[in-house]
Amino acid sequence: MSASAALLSIEVLDYDFMRRALVAAVLVGLAAPATGVFLVQRRLALIGDGLGHVAVTGVALGLVLDRAPVFVALITAVIGAVVLELIRSRREAVAEMALAILFYGGIAGGVVLVSRAPAGGRSLNQYLFGSITTTSTSDLVTFGVLAVVVMTVTVALGPALFTVSSDEEFARASGLPVVPLNLTLAVLSALTVVISMRVVGVLLVSALMVVPVAAAQLVTRSFRSTYLAGILVGAVVSVSGVVASYYLDTPPGGTIVLFAIGLFAVTLIAQALVRALR
């Protein structure tokens, strides 16, 4: 680490809220791609968006009822994920339609509900666009638990989840509990969406799950290395995005995602250059 970088990070660490923000960034940066890599493999990369929209309804409901919005969002996102998965497992053909309805229903429900909330729509913004710098200590505990759950489950069930998300028919022939495994992945996605929501905002949740994986797979050859590189990229862009947003005075969520996309683009260009020079 260069001297100036060391100085920068030390200054950032002077503030409690920045310390919490950085811890949150690491947790979410690790967890989001850990789920995302299986969603990409299952061709459900955009499910995070759908669940994010459902979470909006949950947040609004939480604001109306004056209950912890993150908790209510968690419940609605899990219900949404399970319903979506059950529809998909029965009628593959209507799954896309169901996802679309989830998308619009989630946002519409959120907008309508929040108009009834005591504080009006203002506090919804921090969920739409993220507000990592308002992370409280109790938020951190929630993020930490959820991140540990996501990482533990994806590692422990790794071989089974890989098989079921790569080739569902073969998974069934192998006697794997396909529906419960898919439901597990759906619930993990909901957990990830809800923890990512506070960091990058609902509108960018999917980006944090998918873009690090997209960047990683440019250079990897195996699923395992994509998983590892994906969570590494996720953590690195999240931390650097938060640090950069502090100095540039930009919104952290958007900055994180732009960093991820930047890394993707730079890797792509570097790869093209290397090929051209060979």
């Binding site: 493999q41 069930l157 794997l176 195996s222 699923f223 994509t226």
Partner: peptide, 24 residues
Amino acid sequence: AASPVPATLDEVVRSGRVARIGLL
């Protein structure tokens, strides 16, 4: 089945043992 995430031949063939190793 197409693999959107890179997966090596080794990894795919290994999934043929998943019924033996069990869920966890």
